[in-house]
Design a binder for these strands. Structure first.
Lengths: 217, 217
DNA sequence: CACCTTCCCTAACAAGTGTTTGGTAGATTA
DNA sequence: TAATCTACCAAACACTTGTTAGGGAAGGTG
């Protein structure tokens, strides 16, 4: 990351002039470019992806990206933030519904696979990069999201144990990581239009998580 | 990667002289440096890790690494190759034993957690980077390993279905990915000496995978 | 027509990258 | 003591990186 750019957030705002920046890229084009960037990030990894590769995929030159975004990191942030916002829209509507613990778990898993279907690249990026990113203040919202995520799942699992629908002899934190991981790693191999709908994959996963793969004796 | 180094693999071999390279680094020091490098790779990601960071962690300067290794990529390769070699040592002894499908699955899972315990960093690197690396001819052995891996697991699962110990109503390829992922993602959060031994984690995971997390009705 | 806006290009920059070359302190061997 | 070997340092190299500055073509609007 060259150019330390110490000029204390110098952007537009000519000290009392117009409020908007001098240039106004269209949101449609931004979104289009973000989708392209997300695909490259997901495929090659964030650090291995140069702005020139993104520009190539978009059919333009590297410098031209800076008409729409003010840094490579901004693209990453916008991709992840958009994904998390939509994810929590879905989760919140599930969590606020009057469901039993088992139904809540089923709904959360199904909703997760739908999000993977919609934001495949963003999920892949999130999984690979979030661990390093949380160290930066710019990406602190990732930590907050992770904590809400953990709380939602742990609460559901604990409620299930209390109600007698989930086994009480399991380490609940281990079970949490188990469920969480089994769901989200699917983004690494899932391809939309591959014969399985998100709902169908969710059903099979739930069947394994809830009842196991062994035959009942 | 600067320096195109077009000189057609020019390294030692002075056209008929001594067989060994002019310098001979000790294998002990190599191993030590590789362990350090693996930790940094795992924590920061391969591409985000500069040779200067590795050198820092090792208490030396960047150029000094090139006395022991001939490139950053060589370090990565040796780390992954060492890990896979030891992994298959364990797997092969399990697969050649006269075990039923359920016992084979249990042994494979347990062995996997032992390898995670031993090669935590290498496993983390493998998971993050292998997807991009397989494109390079230098890392083709990763593909071969993945194919053996898949075959071993699929065979075991199919044998279990035939023998009536695993459920026949599951998509077997989905079940394979399910079991594979649940095991290996543990490397992302597992820390040795964290209260759980590899065997204990294996038992809990197997309990969930085989019997599910719901209470039997 | 002139004017403005949107979108991209050309060309460069400074910092960071993996790597090489030559040298050298210290131990080991002859 | 001299020669040799091991393991490192110091300094540079060629190249890549994210980013910027200025300019210009196309289209719409007054």
């Amino acid at each position: 990351m060259p150019k330390q750019n110490q000029s204390s957030d110098t952007r537009e705002k000519p000290a009392g002039g117009k409020k908007k920046p001098p240039v106004t890229p269209s949101p449609e084009r931004r979104g289009e470019l973000l989708r392209i960037a997300a695909d490259v990030f997901a495929e090659q990894g964030y650090n291995a992806t140069t702005v020139r590769k993104i520009a190539d995929a978009a059919g333009m030159l590297a410098g031209s990206l800076y008409y729409h975004f003010d840094s490579k990191e901004s693209m990453l942030e916008e991709i992840l933030r958009t994904f998390l916002t939509e994810l929590w829209d879905g989760y919140d509507s599930v969590l606020s519904a009057p469901l039993g613990p088992r139904e809540t778990l089923e709904a959360l898993v199904t909703e997760s696979f739908r999000e993977i279907d919609r934001h495949r690249s963003a999920v892949a990026i999130y999984q690979k990069e979030s661990k390093h990113l949380v160290a930066q203040t710019r990406f602190e919202y990732l930590v907050e999201s992770q904590q809400r995520f953990e709380k939602a799942w742990l609460t559901t699992l604990e409620r299930g144990v209390t109600d007698g629908v989930f086994r009480a002899d399991l380490d609940i934190r281990l079970a949490y990581r188990f469920v969480r991981d089994t769901v989200w790693v699917a983004a690494s191999w899932y391809r939309p239009g591959g014969g399985h709908s998100p709902e169908e994959i969710a059903r099979q996963y739930l069947s394994m998580v809830l009842d196991g793969i062994s035959v009942r004796t």
